[in-house]
Design a protein around this nucleic acid. Structure first.
Lengths: 212, 212
DNA sequence: TAGATTGTTAATCGATTAACAATC
DNA sequence: TAGATTGTTAATCGATTAACAATC
């Protein structure tokens, strides 16, 4: 068993992955922690410390092979697998996410979208027909659902979350403005857009904050 | 001049605001840091430390008046003002944000939406007609634009960002998968959806991480 | 008043940075 | 080999938690 890695480190991994992807696109094959640190505006120490939580990917006197490190981080993040996602709530947010094709390029496949509104059920969004939320239970039995995207209004968020958990779905990507108790090893990743906008408002009005 | 407040504290403010709002809705008029800490799953010490960055809002032996504290945090976050926002990019994300009415309840008003696609320009989304992105410069001269919502594809993100800055817009809510140099006091708040999904993937596959 | 709970100082903990021996 | 740069240990810094005097 690896030693525990702090969430602070984990949240930096996608950023490394992004920068390494850019380097790859630019045909750069090797990079030192120092050069990368300047591009990313962090310390070289931090980069080396972060990476060494997962293994020794560099070489003394050389630095890091960009492609190799890119692939390692991909593996660490779990992006060599594919994931089946269902969207709960076929409103604006749910539709926007379904229509956003970038996620599928990373292996996140939308296999279902559900709503309770009789006027939306049956309509087609992109390649999927909106199903009745009451069909979710059977759907999870017949399909391997990894992640539920919670995009319902705040009022029904708790109900739907309880259903998700009881149906055995393990991952929740939460766009509702609510928080949930993590139970039975359920993993919740929150996207609080309103919180983000409020943080922007604060920063907008004040110069008295410390970057990062 | 107040002493600097760390971004960690600032990012917790919207969460306090959210929980206090819930308490208010439930008719609860006072709360101690201890009771709130149990609801929020943080320490009472942290709550008191956080709040005391901004003032003394409690009362010994009593705790905090919920409504008063709610209003204080609202003020601190800058939610007693209103903000004018323009959306750049009338694709799925841009449209979804425009259609999401919650933001306006908080004082964030969408006053324009722009795109470069001739097929989209002129169409109406909610209450706004999509304008040609080339009209943005004049628009910013005639209107007080506080925040630009960057919802364009990655390829054009940098170009549009440069324009935003040169037109004197101070706040950027960035939904593009790019990062920008903060220049001329420009404030950028990033929403990296793909990063968030990758973090979820990591957590999904591993139990070896530390919560928060 | 006595009990409760704050505001704040001090202690602890963890994360970041610096330094450097190991080594490619 | 000499130079470069890692992996890793040690030092520093900052954030969180604990403790408690002040006080409502």
């Amino acid at each position: 068993m690896d030693k525990k890695v702090s969430l602070a480190v984990i949240k930096r991994l996608p950023r490394y992955y992004r920068f390494l992807g850019d380097l790859l696109d630019n045909g750069i094959t090797r990079i030192s922690s120092k050069d990368l640190s300047e591009k990313m505006n962090v310390t070289a120490s931090q980069i080396r410390q972060d990476l060494n939580n997962f293994g020794c990917f560099g070489q003394q006197g050389y630095g890091y092979n960009v492609e190799l490190l890119f692939e390692e981080i991909k593996e660490i993040l779990g992006l060599n697998k594919t994931y089946n996602l269902v969207i709960l709530g076929a409103g604006k947010i749910g539709q926007a996410l379904l229509n956003y094709t970038k996620f599928e390029k990373r292996g996140f496949n939308f296999i279902g979208i559900f709503d309770k509104d009789i006027n939306i059920i049956g309509t087609k969004i992109r390649n999927l027909e909106v199903k009745d939320i009451r069909e979710l239970e059977n759907f999870t039995k017949e399909n391997n659902v990894d992640i539920a995207v919670l995009a319902v209004p705040a009022e029904s968020a708790n109900d739907i979350y309880e259903k998700i958990v009881s149906y055995g779905i393990k991952g929740v990507w939460n766009f509702s403005n609510k928080e949930f108790r993590k139970e039975n090893g359920v993993i919740v990743e929150d996207v609080h857009l309103t919180d983000s906008l409020m943080t922007l408002a604060y920063k907008f009005n004040s110069n008295d904050f410390i970057e990062y």
